[in-house]
């Protein structure tokens, strides 16, 4: 044999692996994206009413934020396992666990965004005869959008990473390939799937950044001028929450 077979040699990087198992890799990636997207979408749908409740009735704010924070400190393997009696070995188990994790950051960010809506804007809208729903939809939510999208970005990136743990119930997307590669000592499979996972997180982050710029063009307009202040305030702002569940 003139050409060394990287599959037989069990190399870390193996083009032949990617060629021969491309379908498997695509399927796993699709599953990974589907689980992540469903989790973040449901997470936003659950977090928004919770944030509105916490804002409407002050006494609910502490328990809502408290419970979501406690959920955040539960290790992912335990979280998925605790849901096992309710969902069995299913994709909905993984999605539910990921939704519960996403709530911490999403509720916090949406609440902060809503609370930062200037009182004048609210008063002006009321003066123009806006009802509470129209006020929320046309004034408050658009103004809270940057904070919401920042939360969605952080959540999406950590959800992509956390989805791998779903491998414990066989619904981990690329994580299933990674765990499988451990059992078979298949280095190329583990490295390829891990790299795809990181690439997925970075791609999702960049896409959401683009979406953020597209949807909130007004946030960029004044960022260019006061360069010194913007830079000074930036590091603290970009870290909404520095820990992430594993």
């Amino acid at each position: 044999m003139s050409k060394r077979d990287c599959l037989v040699a069990n190399d870390w990087i193996c083009g032949e692996y990617v060629r021969s198992r491309s379908q498997e890799l695509i399927d796993a990636t699709v599953e990974h994206v589907a689980i992540t997207a469903a989790s973040v979408a449901i997470g936003v749908a659950v977090a928004l009413p919770l944030a509105l409740l916490a804002r409407r009735w002050r006494f609910l704010a502490a328990p809502i934020l408290g419970v979501t924070t406690v959920l955040y400190s539960i290790p992912s393997l335990a979280m998925f396992s605790l849901l096992l009696p309710f969902f069995g070995l299913s994709a909905s188990l993984v999605v539910t666990g990921l939704v519960l994790y996403s709530l911490t950051i999403l509720v916090r960010n949406i609440l902060a965004g809503l609370q930062a809506v200037p009182e004048e804007a609210r008063e002006a809208a009321k003066g123009m005869g806006y009802g509470p729903l129209r006020l929320l939809w046309e004034v408050e939510l658009p103004l809270a959008l940057p904070a919401l999208l920042a939360g969605v970005r952080i959540t999406t990136v950590s959800t992509v990473a956390l989805t791998t743990v779903g491998a414990i119930v066989d619904y981990g997307g690329l994580g299933t390939l990674i765990l499988d590669g451990l059992d078979t000592q298949f280095k190329a499979q583990v490295l390829t799937a891990s790299a795809l996972c990181v690439a997925l997180a970075i791609t999702a982050d960049l896409l959401l950044l683009a979406l953020q710029r597209l949807l909130t063009p007004w946030t960029r307009a004044h960022r260019i001028r006061p360069g010194r202040f913007a830079r000074k305030a930036d590091p603290a702002k970009s870290v909404a929450k520095v820990a992430e569940p594993v």
Partner: peptide, 25 residues
């Protein structure tokens, strides 16, 4: 500062399970 802050964002994107298994292999 950029390093200290961004390292957290990088840490978020890397799956823990993948690192554990990669190191084991």
């Amino acid at each position: 500062g950029a390093l200290a802050v961004n390292i957290s964002n990088v840490g978020r994107a890397v799956p823990t399970l993948a690192v554990l298994i990669l190191l084991t292999l």
